[in-house]
Design a protein around this nucleic acid. Structure first.
Lengths: 141, 141
DNA sequence: CTCCCAGATCAGAATTATTCCAATGTACTA
DNA sequence: TAGTACATTGGAATAATTCTGATCTGGGAG
């Protein structure tokens, strides 16, 4: 999914398209590569390049908004590094380096485990899941 | 594993057995049931019952120590609820309620996914992994 | 059993991440 | 093009965790 599609999707949901929101979305979509997932501060710095007076609060509020709209995901990796990514590139999980914090995307998902749990605990309403593998990347070993 | 075994294991590792440390370990082992995983504050309150002047810092330091010694695990659940559990009851994952924060233990593990990743990324040194399923428990729906 | 000191504890301050608030600004409808 | 509901701003508040420097103590040596 590209930036224009994402903006359209926001508009369809009746969300006001402010320049700050557009730029946060642009950073998530265009500045990220497969191994780079931004912290809120990194996103803030990048948005500041174009909108120097943007506040930290706006970044967080926008990220929460985008998450609610299904356009961003909040990643709670171990070691206190909460990161954000664009959610329009398909479901995946992460291989996370504990030294440099970079996360590579893994095109897999423990679906059988999920299915088993849902079958065995009908009383629990599943809404999501997380799966991360931790360790040290080649550079950091 | 019981409290005495855990204390012995600490001693073998040359760790000083202070009353505070013993009480933290006792809380983790004897006060927890399968659906209750304590926050640092909950552990602090419980240790205070016996050692009224214990500091918050001691709780955190002890939990880090126990984690390094393999006797505790830090659980980074989504929604900012970091919790701690005794690590002597076998490997497992968690079914986490996003409302009340309780976590039920799941006796399963996405092993095939781990094996696949290790086979496909020989350059990455895997040291651990996390798998949690989120949703709402019967009570909280 | 007592002494001793490396390492542990304590209280409170510092740090970090995130959210709240009240005043001000603005995207979008009509 | 104007009006207003919603968004942004900057600074302060909150919460979680860690640091610091003074004081205390578990447990080995004698």
């Amino acid at each position: 999914m590209k930036l224009d599609d994402a903006l359209l999707k926001l508009k369809e949901q009746g969300v006001r398209l402010t320049p700050q929101r557009q730029e946060v979305l642009r950073v998530l979509i265009e500045d990220a590569d497969k191994e780079e997932h931004f912290s809120a501060e990194e996103i803030w710095r990048r948005v500041q390049r174009r909108y120097a007076s943007v506040s930290f609060d706006t970044i967080y509020r926008t990220l929460r908004l985008l998450t609610r709209c299904g356009l961003a995901s909040e990643l709670d990796f171990s070691g206190g590094c909460r990161r954000f990514e664009f959610a329009g590139n398909g479901h995946h999980h992460h291989l996370v380096c504990l030294k440099c914090g970079r996360a590579e995307e893994l095109p897999l998902c423990p679906e059988e485990c999920l299915a088993r749990v849902q079958a065995e605990r009908p009383g629990f309403k599943v809404t999501g899941h997380a799966f991360e593998i931790y360790g040290y990347c080649q550079r950091c070993q």
